[in-house]
Design a protein around this nucleic acid. Structure first.
Length: 640
DNA sequence: GTGGCGTGGCTTTTT
DNA sequence: GCCACGCCAC
């Protein structure tokens, strides 16, 4: 194949990286320097030059979006589809592994994925059962404890109790019981996907050998965001012979708070011999003014590998700084600037530190009739009605899924009240069985009132019926909607709300139809669809109209816009007041760096003299980050 | 089973 | 100030 198509479009450093010898390659890629391009071209180059078979290549990302984009771009570069190439998220790939090797992983074939919401519910139920006070052991804290430990690769049994720390001991115990519960219910939470996959590979030499042999070339995107277990997993999989190709930017590490370890970069250089570091420092995105601002700002961080982005591009407009009187004034200013902007609306982004800030912007954009789109918030598969119906389907797949059971046992109301459920829980706990099995026992024992027994029997029959239906997925969902009484249930709540919910259910049925058409294994299509729902929460709004984009700085990473508004640049908000120690402050600064480098042409910095927060109006000082940007790059404006 | 009231907490978020 | 959630009373 003619590979000049591949190599022509690259600059010198990109070319060096893409065509680097088959060693461990680390690419330090600054913002806007062609990071994804480098990764996709490398993979395409490996295949096109017959260095390897696609079958021997693995590429890992953090988000579904990044994975889809990568696959799409690789396909476009190649003349024929890369068969056997694995591209996916850490969770997607480890999930795929567990589905294939469920026995080795000590799971059942029909195990289900627990999303964070379900996980929290599950913890709450567990606390109730254990009669643990939620005030002393807040469920969210426990969830965090469990997830943090799983991210570190630690199970409850790996944690050491401390006789002087009763709180810790209790946490460990809850963690332990939570693990047992999940195992019994045959569910796997997000952290578990990785941990379980890691352990299964570690403990099964033949499997490990197979995958080490298979994945000769392992590619990782956004490596600075990897946590401990992800690192260990990669290390295990790479073994002695596989070659890593890792792309990262230490200056864009903004997820330390959820376990990401920047040190993994040094760790990798230490653990793998002969790594080669390549730097991509030419920026193709921003004007030189914007880039200089970003460079000077980030230079204030001490813990960095250090790099200097440069550009051949235009000098550009000065960065605009606006001091507002209030958050309302700030939003007004932003809206006025957007109205004056001639270009496309979707090329404009309003970025903020906290989600709560979006409301002010929404109100004004609505008033001024400027279409907008907000990222974040509730996603499609997280909606109540969707989760309800999926819970029915899950239960029909796996009767032991206690989470699903609890969710739908009395939704819609069918006369199985708290009393009955308490009895079921008691039986389940005593016998160490699932709620479904407990229902069977309790029903057989004749302890229930006639009415309750009747309702329970009907409920169980309903689930059995659903399980045995041989219908296409879409029709199954339609059937579930009606037979469960959920539709009526939502309609009771009020017209407008009901309409929205029913529309969503309709969309779910359509999604199921789409899914079924692309899925080639009819016998497991439901299971596949449920996995899909858990692993890809779905975008909030699918319409890609020409809208102004509103999002937090965190969700802006990886994106770029012609015009960027960085709002709320005030002390205590950005940097956030909970992040003022040295370590966290550097992360806040990186967050600001990410924000600045999203902009191609125009960058606005806004701060307000006062802001309404927590029911009070507070006086605000401008963010230290504003002062860190050289004055000569900035133009202060006042609104008439 | 539901609706009303009181309390607490409140950074970022993917999977 | 707002929302989510738990608790209690009807």
């Amino acid at each position: 194949m003619d590979t000049s198509k591949l190599t022509k479009q690259l600059n010198k450093e990109q070319l060096t990286a893409v065509t680097a010898p088959l060693e461990h390659i680390l690419v330090l890629a600054g913002a806007g320097s062609g990071k994804t391009r480098c990764l996709t071209y490398r993979i395409a180059w490996l295949i096109a030059t017959d260095k390897t078979n696609p079958h021997n290549i693995l590429a890992v990302t953090f988000t579904n979006k990044a994975a889809n984009q990568m696959r799409f771009r690789i396909d476009n570069l190649l003349t024929e589809p890369a068969k056997g190439l694995w591209v996916g998220t850490f969770h997607g790939i480890t999930h795929r592994f567990l589905r294939t090797h469920w026995q080795a992983a000590n799971l059942s074939q029909s195990f289900q994925i627990l999303d964070s919401n379900d996980q929290l519910r599950s913890i709450k139920r567990l606390l109730k059962a254990l009669a643990v006070d939620e005030k002393v052991f807040p469920p969210k804290k426990i969830q965090n404890f469990i997830n943090t430990n799983k991210d570190e690769g630690l199970r409850a049994r790996n944690l050491t109790a401390d006789e002087n720390d009763l709180w810790l001991n209790q946490m460990i115990e809850i963690y332990q019981i939570y693990e047992e519960n999940c195992q019994r219910s045959d569910v796997v939470d997000f952290g578990e996907l990785l941990l379980r996959c890691y352990e299964t590979l570690r403990d099964n030499p033949q499997l490990l050998e197979y995958y080490q042999q298979r994945f000769q070339f392992i590619h990782v995107d956004e490596f600075q965001d990897t946590n401990n277990i992800q690192y260990k997993w990669l290390q295990l999989l790479a073994g002695q012979n596989s070659k890593l190709f890792v792309v990262f930017d230490d200056d864009q590490s903004i997820y330390a708070w959820r376990g990401a370890k920047i040190e993994n970069i040094q760790r990798l250089q230490h653990d793998f011999a002969n790594t080669k570091l390549i730097r991509l420092e030419q920026n193709y995105r921003s004007t030189s003014k914007i880039l200089t601002a970003a460079n000077v700002l980030i230079a204030n961080n001490t813990k960095r590998l250090g790099k200097n982005l440069w550009t051949n591009g235009a000098i550009g407009e000065p960065i605009v700084l606006y001091q507002a009187y209030s958050e309302v004034d700030e939003a007004w200013f932003v809206a006025e600037q957007i109205l004056a902007w001639q270009g496309s609306r979707k090329e404009v982004a309003i970025l903020y530190r906290t989600t709560a800030q979006s409301r002010q912007f929404e109100e004004i954009l609505l008033q001024k009739n400027i279409p907008y789109r907000i990222y974040g918030g509730l996603r499609f598969y997280e909606r109540l009605e969707i989760k309800d119906i999926l819970a029915y389907l899950r239960l029909s797949m796996n009767r032991n899924d206690d989470n699903a059971f609890e969710r739908v046992i009395n939704t819609p109301k069918r006369g199985i009240g708290e009393r009955t459920v308490v009895m079921l829980r008691g039986e389940a706990r005593q016998q160490n069985i699932s709620l479904w099995q407990a229902s069977n026992n309790i029903f057989a024992s004749g302890q229930l009132s006639k009415r309750a027994a009747n309702s329970l029997q009907n409920f169980m029959a309903l689930i059995e019926k659903l399980a045995n239906l041989e219908l296409p997925l879409q029709e199954k969902i339609e059937y579930a909607k009606m037979s469960t009484g959920l539709v009526e249930h939502y309609q009771k709540a009020g017209k407008e709300e009901a309409q929205g919910r029913l529309e969503n259910l309709e969309e779910l049925a359509n999604a199921a139809h789409q899914f079924e058409r692309q899925y080639n294994n009819a016998s497991s299509v439901l299971s596949g669809f449920l996995d899909h729902a858990a692993l890809e929460a779905g975008e909030k709004q699918s319409k890609s109209n020409d809208c102004v984009q509103l999002m937090t700085l965190h969700s802006a990473k990886g994106l770029e816009f012609e015009v960027v508004f960085l709002s709320g640049l005030e002390e205590d908000l950005f940097p956030h007041k909970n992040s003022l120690d040295d370590f966290n402050l550097e992360e806040e600064r990186r967050l600001c760096y990410v924000g600045i480098t999203r902009a191609r042409k125009l960058l606005y910095l806004c701060h307000s003299k006062s802001r309404f927060r927590y029911g009070e109006r507070n006086i605000c000082k401008p963010s230290r980050f504003i002062e860190e940007i050289p004055e000569e790059l900035i133009k202060k404006v006042r609104l008439a």
